[in-house]
Amino acid sequence: MNDRSYSFLLFKSLYQPSIAFEELAKVDPSPFNILIRYSIWLLILPPAFSLIGAANFGWRLGAAEPLMLPTNTLVLVSVAYLCVLIFGLLSTAFISRWMASTYGASTSLGRHVALITIVGEPLAIASVAHLYPDVFVNILILIPTMIWSMYLLYKGIPIVLETPPERGMLMASSLVGWLLVAAVSLLGLSVMLWTLGVGPLLGV
């Protein structure tokens, strides 16, 4: 196992993303290493923040009083949240590697995992908004962050995966398509669970 330090993933990528991308392009890290030593710490943040926020203030969906759920339910929701995030990261990395051959990009899985980690990092940090669990406040903070993340995706792919910027642009757009479909699937899946009786009580 490769024990090199890739701390630039977490730090330099925040203030000098291009340099972090170039450093990443020089190495071929082990995906497991990246996941355990770096990605996982970021992925833990959103569920943790949401657990603390929801336990103390309850989720506000806009209307009327906040929704308070029992602690064990909240822990369950947070664990599910973490699983979804890990699945999201890995599936996006695998899809990204699958697409790579079409766009003449590097197929090093470690780099794909690391790239998706860098792209997702601002969102993980901005999830501090979950401490104040009002849906609208969260959307307001997460949308600009998401635009920054998309910028990182378009910027990062050609550098990290060593493909011409134009091909990188195509690949990034394809990945955006995948992410949109994944997001809406998640939304649809949650709604289906609700109507089946899991989660909030619905009169259907």
Partner: peptide, 26 residues
């Protein structure tokens, strides 16, 4: 190129919203 990504989203979202258990909410 980007329009194709959104086309992919819209044509996936549509059938999903046609499912009765999603449609009841949406």
């Amino acid at each position: 190129v980007l329009s194709l990504a959104f086309y992919g989203l819209a044509t996936f979202e549509g059938p999903m919203m046609a499912l009765r258990s999603v449609n009841v909410v949406s």
